[in-house]
Design a protein around this nucleic acid. Structure first.
Lengths: 341, 341
DNA sequence: CTGAAAGCGCTAACAC
DNA sequence: GTGTTAGCGCTTTCAG
């Protein structure tokens, strides 16, 4: 029952030749006769021979595999980035190994350890919400493996990164709210040790300042990027009697929580409170009213990350200068934030 | 710049000992002295030594890795199953390699080929919509690797499977619609070469028959499981003047399409048309009105798949009798299908 | 055009 | 308690 895997030695034996010839035949090596190649291939398919990746990659020192480490795959943004990575990877002959940190630092460390045990030739990552220090990523790099961060990137590390214009889009979307007559705009933020939330908050603040609107502490909801915390933040604003006429949420799920609370309490959106989100999750289009949000061009982000990483992998040895790319995002205007027309 | 990976030979050299001693020390082998173990470990961490997975798994013949092949990770159901698998895998010392077929047969074949090149010790899979014949899975099995299917399983293969009670839940949900006064219930089905859609359709039909309701061809929308096709199916029913008062959708996305059409045309749900979905995607709770659907207990499905697979992997050699598990699903009743209270 | 032999990094008998 | 050796399956010089 224990079916032995077929090796090139098995093929060689049956063809009265040697493993090296079989190996070369399988690779379509120029110095092998046509009939021999034919014979080898025929037998290989007949016996369902499969090259052993483990042996191959040990021998060659690389395995054409790129690792992806994301907080969770069940977010449209991350799933989209992965898709983008896969298209480029496949086209370049790479395989992809996907890992999730589930927003946990300890899981992130564990996954990282697995990955660098020679499983991958490089890594594309976006850090978990809990990640403040990056020593684990540094020891990954210390092994000499290329690393590219996207979206949530640590700014302490000298490494290739690809992000979107969080600051600019946050600024712009805040001005959009102002243009729609909002003057008391609440910020539903995320942990500010993460670049994206820090930058989005900065864009928001600067837009208020530049428009001579006060930046009020009571309007700053510090941790409101999940459905639950968004709901709660909205509830607290209301029950504390804070006057506000808009919510700029740094993430769609925080905006969702706010909308669900509003729906429950029959608070009119956008009439009483205009709301915007961030990430353009698909539910934003479905919910009533549809949610204004920021599309982060995940596919493109994935594509470019993969291209950068593969380039680094293949230029291994030459010293590679980390690059930083900032993509332009796109604001998707929907009714949740538009009061006129 | 080309940083050489540290090997056990490097450690051995620096400690004036041999690779085998280092290897044993690292594994906490009983026959190695305390001081030696200490010394080895200290140096290992100092030099950031990482065991080479490729060498290890080549040597041992297995790599404690289980592959997952799903249509797409960006579906709550699949993401949830993956999560379930990961919990069990991690607890049993296995890593997980995730692959997507993107509902394409050719991509499924390619991914499968990669996986069986000695990358994984077993596979958990759910087939793509395009998958009718399963020769590619059969040649996977021919290499002797264990395989477990979940949810979308091929019934031609003698292999372990885990599904939910599609027939029973479809029957029950159809009766629920009937109990709510619906008598002309449209079926938004999927390709019937896939077990789940075939079984859901059968449950629907039998429920109608048993309740003396006619099963009408014009109410059977053959391929309506995406948002787009669901929308279109609804539009066609209406424009063809078909009388109907409910939609039993075999998937949430088909139901979504129907609801979006209804919203556009101001068709009252559930008043004019009651709607039910299948899969309990999160948007079902958010959409207005919230969507009745079937929860498939993805976490549990993942856990059990992983347990079965790991058992098969570890009983390798002994002939293993494939098992089939059918999980009980749960109908989540929401307003989209309830006319009374 | 094909063979022989070494070695990728690791583990596990088998010595001593 | 530690060292020696062979070998997992493959590729690739170097010979012929």
């Amino acid at each position: 029952m224990t079916e032995k895997r077929i090796t090139i030695y098995d093929l060689a034996r049956q063809l009265n030749t040697t493993a090296s010839t079989v190996s070369r035949a399988l690779q379509d090596h120029p110095g092998i006769s046509k009939p021999m190649k034919e014979a080898v291939r025929k037998l290989a398919t007949k016996l369902n021979y499969q090259t052993n990746y483990r042996a191959l990659s040990l021998r060659k020192g690389f395995g054409n595999t790129i690792g992806i480490l994301v907080p969770q795959v069940n977010r449209n943004f991350f799933a989209t980035v992965i898709h983008g990575i896969e298209t480029i990877a496949a086209a370049s002959g790479y395989h992809v190994l996907i890992c999730q940190s589930f927003e946990s630092l300890s899981k992130e460390k564990i996954q990282l350890k697995n990955l660098l045990n020679g499983r991958v030739d490089g890594l594309i990552a976006s850090v978990s919400l809990e990640t403040k220090s990056c020593t684990h990523f540094e020891s990954f790099m210390a092994t000499g493996l290329p690393l590219v961060f996207f979206d949530r990137v640590p700014d302490t590390m000298d490494v290739s990164k690809i992000t979107i214009d969080d600051y600019a889009s946050a600024y712009k979307i805040t001005e959009h709210l102002i243009a729609n007559g909002c003057s008391r705009i609440a910020l539903f933020g995320g942990p500010e040790h993460i670049n994206i939330y820090r930058n989005r908050a900065a864009g928001y603040r600067d837009a208020l300042n530049d428009n001579k609107l006060p930046v009020s502490g009571e309007l700053h909801c510090v941790n409101a990027i999940t459905r639950e915390t968004g709901y709660q933040a909205m509830a607290e604003l209301v029950s504390n009697g804070v006057a506000f006429d808009a919510v700029f949420a740094a993430g769609d799920y925080g905006a969702l929580g706010a909308m669900l609370y509003a729906r429950e309490k029959r608070i009119d959106i956008p009439g009483a409170v205009a709301i915007t989100g961030y990430a353009n999750e698909p539910f934003g289009e479905i919910i009533d009213p549809p949610l204004t949000s920021v599309d982060q061009h995940g596919i493109e982000m994935g594509r470019q990350s993969a291209r950068m990483l593969i380039e680094e992998i293949e230029h291994k040895g030459e010293s590679y200068i980390p690059r930083e790319i900032v993509l332009r995002s796109e604001i998707i205007y929907r009714p949740s934030s538009q009061r006129n027309g």
